[in-house]
Structure formats: C-alpha cells, structure tokens
C-alpha cells in the first residue's frame, strides 16, 4: 500500500482536484444547467490563491475561503446574465466565458502574471484534497433528498412541472450555479497549489472539457458520478502512462467515446438495478389497494 501511495500520490491528487471541478459542474447540472464555466471560477480561485500566496503569504485556509467566496460571488453575478438563456445557448455562452477568461488573465498582468503566469507555493497535501472532496460529497449526499435537492432534480427533469409544484426554477438554477462557482473556486485553489505554477492556459478549454467529460462519463444522475468519472478520466490515463508511453491520450479519447455510446447515462446510474436494490427493500406494506370509495 505504501508503495502504491508513493508511486501514485500525484495521480490521486490530480484526480481529486479534477473531481472537485467535475463536482462543481455536476452541481450546476443537478438543476439542469450544463455549464463549462467551472474553468472560469477555477481561474478566479487559482489566481486569487496565487496572489494571496505571493503578496501576503496567506495559508491554505485563507486561500480556500477566499477562492470559495470569490467563485461564489462571480458565479452569482454571472447567473443573472446567463441563466435567462435557453439551455444550449447557455452552454455555449459558458464556453465563450472560458475563452474570455484567458483574455482577462492575459491582460490583468499585475495580478495574474499575464502570459508568463505565476508561481504558487504548494500548501495542500493529499489529505486536504481528499477531505475537500469528502466534504462536498457529504454535503451533496445530505442535500440529495432535502427540500432544495429535490427541487433541483425536479427543475432538471421538468422545469414546468417543478414550477407547478411551487418551485421557482430560476432561483433554484441560480443557487446551483452559484454553488458550482463555489466548488470550482475551491478546485481552482487546489489545482494552483498542486501545479505550483498557473498561467493563461491552465484554466482554459482543456480543463473545461475535462471537467464536463469526467462528469458525464461518471454519470450526471448521482453525485458519485463526477468522482468516478474524474478517477477514470484523469487517473487511469496517468497509470497507463507509467507503463506504456504515448498511448494514454488515444486511450482516453476512445474510452470516452465508447462509454458514451454504450453507457449513455454514465458509469454511475442510480436507475440501474444493483444500485437500487438496497433502496427498494419493501417496507411493511399494509393492504390498501382499493381507492377510498366515499359514497
């Protein structure tokens, strides 16, 4: 076991950082918002962490709190602009947002280092990263069948029906989008600390594609999906690379296509029987098959 950790420590770390990003995308998806803007919020978190580190020597706790707060704030502001769009336009607008993020990073040189980028002192360890993922999972597991969680799922499945049940779809989506900004902001802080160098291309299209691909690959119907997806999508190729060089990306691409073609709902699908077995243990069923006949 010790050997495994030594060999794959960084693989696990990056898989977990990507899991955080994928979880961020999943939170938006929870309410039916397909967003790649996680890369933008990640940039907000990552560059704020770098700035705090460089200019104030701030510790990881401060970095995480600031990253989370800024991610949340920026996402909340953008939600006003974006969430009125029809879903596919919204998705494309988040792509545009990611493209613009790079431009902003390049031009805000005094904060981001511009095209040169900026170094970051590493202040996270594996335990912190795993703890963060666990914390998000805990929250999502608790919220899954809470008032908000059920509303979010309802809005995703059928926004009109949800509205007729008293749910305001816009609010639910805005909250989900803001929360996804919070998690992606945290993920940005973590990634910056792991990489120890971030530049204009760190939080760009590749990261945006990676997080949504990991999310969909793992399954968008359960919060465990994005984590499994990130492990398969980011971790597995790293492991393969250590044995065979050069084919890991070809393999990743082919795997993604294959899984989407043959398992369109992703690896973790709560509809699947084995997943439901535990839940569908029949409770004591009193015989009440007939409708009440009143007259």
């Amino acid at each position: 076991m010790g050997g495994f950790w030594d060999q794959y420590r960084s693989v696990v770390e990056f898989a977990m950082a990507n899991a955080l990003f994928a979880l961020g995308s999943w939170i938006a998806m929870w309410a039916g918002v397909f967003s790649m803007a996680g890369a933008t919020f990640g940039a907000v978190g990552g560059f704020s962490a770098a700035y705090l580190d460089l200019h104030m020597g701030a510790g990881i706790v401060v970095q995480l709190l600031v990253g989370a707060g800024l991610g949340l704030g920026v996402a909340a502001l953008l939600s006003v602009l974006l969430l009125k769009l029809e879903s596919h336009w919204m998705a494309m607008a988040t792509v545009a947002l990611v493209l613009i993020t790079r431009v902003v990073v390049l031009s805000a040189e005094e904060y981001t280092g511009g095209s040169v980028g900026t170094g970051v002192t590493r202040r996270v360890d594996l335990v912190t990263v795993i703890a963060l993922v666990a914390l998000v999972c805990y929250a999502l597991a608790r919220l899954r069948r809470s008032r908000y969680g059920m509303a979010a799922h309802a809005v995703r499945e059928d926004a009109a029906v949800a509205a007729a049940l008293g749910v305001n779809p816009f609010t639910v989506r805005a909250v989900a989008f803001a929360a996804s900004g919070l998690v992606a902001g945290v993920a940005g802080v973590v990634l910056a600390n792991l990489l120890q160098y971030i530049g204009p291309d760190t939080f760009f299209i590749t990261l945006a594609f990676t997080m949504v691909a990991a999310m969909v690959l793992g399954g968008t119907y359960h919060w465990a999906g994005p984590i499994v997806g990130a492990i398969v999508f980011v971790g597995l190729p790293e492991v393969v690379r250590s044995y065979v060089d050069g084919v890991d990306e070809l393999m990743t691409g082919a795997l993604l296509v294959l899984i989407m073609v043959f398992m369109p709902r992703g690896l973790i699908d709560p509809r699947r029987q084995w997943f439901r077995r535990r839940a569908s243990q029949p409770v004591a069923q009193e015989p009440a098959p007939q409708p009440e006949v009143v007259r």
Partner: peptide
C-alpha cells in the same frame, strides 16, 4: 440524444485525433 452526449463524444474524438 440531444446536444450534450454528442458534445462529450466529440470531446473524446478531439482528444484522440489531437493526440494522434
């Protein structure tokens, strides 16, 4: 399927062809 799954498979193809 709608836009989303096709976008994801296209990302897979993108990774593959870019690496190639």
């Amino acid at each position: 399927g709608d836009l989303l799954p096709a976008l994801i498979t296209s990302i897979g193809v993108w990774i593959f062809l870019l690496a190639a």
